[in-house]
């Protein structure tokens, strides 16, 4: 257990520290001026010293990321299911969705701010816009690759289509679904930041960075980038944790004993005794 924990957490942390060390080595080794690129500790210090300013801004970015991601994820699943089930829609809607992703998101941000104003709305829309696509693509793919024999088996039982969908097709699509969600999670923060940049008014993490940049405060610029990255990584890890919790069968050999099922398994003990007795007689 501790060894596994060490490997799963220790190794990533170690590679992160190595990255910071590399940064330090380059900046010192090439004697880079502090206003061009700060030392790592200067960037970190600029964040901790201005934490009371940065935290509310970061909270705003987190909110945009999370809301946008959730809306994008649900929209993505919905579109994926609908397109996989209705071939006409797949042929007609799919190209439009691809088109939506071909539009440079930056070119889309300003008009969205114009339409939706300087609120959280345009940011949420941009995040959802980015997130839904990998989810949809993976869900469509997953649903169209469910083993046809499994679906035939359900038909043999006389299963109605919606039950086949709920108990066979959807669970069989969990792995591609989470692949889509993980890709979406990594891009979500980028979407939020682009939205924040496009809204030139109000206070946000992206505008805080812009401000620091125009003041030649490289430490704050790099520090803010670190905060944005941390939000992205945390969200990604949360999605991974959700996947791990939702798919115990991919790692465990034996199912956990759920409290609401305990009664059932205790009666099982008695049943096996009875049955072994009756077998002994014959």
């Amino acid at each position: 257990m501790t060894r596994k924990l060490l490997r799963n957490i220790g190794v990533p942390v170690l590679s992160l520290l190595l990255l910071l060390a590399l940064w330090q080595a380059i900046v010192v080794g090439f004697n880079v001026a502090p206003y061009v690129a700060p030392r790592p500790w200067q960037a970190i210090l600029s964040v901790t010293q201005n934490w009371s300013t940065i935290w509310p801004l970061a909270l705003g970015t987190i909110r945009e990321t999370v809301y946008g991601f959730l809306i994008g994820a649900f929209l993505g699943v919905f579109l994926g299911v609908v397109m996989a089930k209705i071939p006409v829609l797949q042929r007609s809607v799919y190209p439009v969705l691809v088109l939506s992703q071909a539009v440079p998101i930056i070119a889309l941000a300003s008009p969205l701010v114009l339409i939706l104003g300087f609120s959280i709305m345009p940011k949420i829309v941009i995040v959802a816009w980015i997130v839904f696509f990998p989810v949809t693509v993976n869900v469509v793919d997953g649903l169209s690759h469910v083993d046809p024999d499994l679906i035939n088996l359900a038909r043999v039982y006389g299963a109605p289509r919606w039950r086949t969908f709920v108990h066979i097709e959807m669970p069989a699509t969990t792995t591609p679904l989470f692949s889509g969600l993980k890709i979406g999670a990594t891009y979500a923060v980028t979407g939020a930041v682009i939205g924040e940049l496009a809204a030139s008014e109000g206070s946000s993490l992206a505008l805080y960075q812009e401000h620091a940049n125009s003041n030649l405060n490289a430490a704050a610029v790099y520090g803010t980038t670190m905060v944005m990255t941390a939000i992205g990584i945390s969200w990604f890890l949360l999605v991974v944790a959700t996947e791990v919790a939702a798919t115990p069968w991919q790692r465990r050999s034996v199912a956990r004993r759920y409290p609401w099922r305990r009664a059932r398994f205790e009666t099982d003990g008695a049943a096996s005794i009875v049955s072994s007795l009756s077998k002994g007689e014959s």
């Binding site: 034996v254 096996s272 049955s275």
Partner: peptide, 18 residues
């Protein structure tokens, strides 16, 4: 559970197929 127990899989009820 009865069928599984009777035909030799009683100890594997909570196992995943893998």
């Amino acid at each position: 559970r009865r069928v599984a127990t009777e035909y030799g899989l009683g100890d594997f009820l909570r196992h995943y197929p893998r």
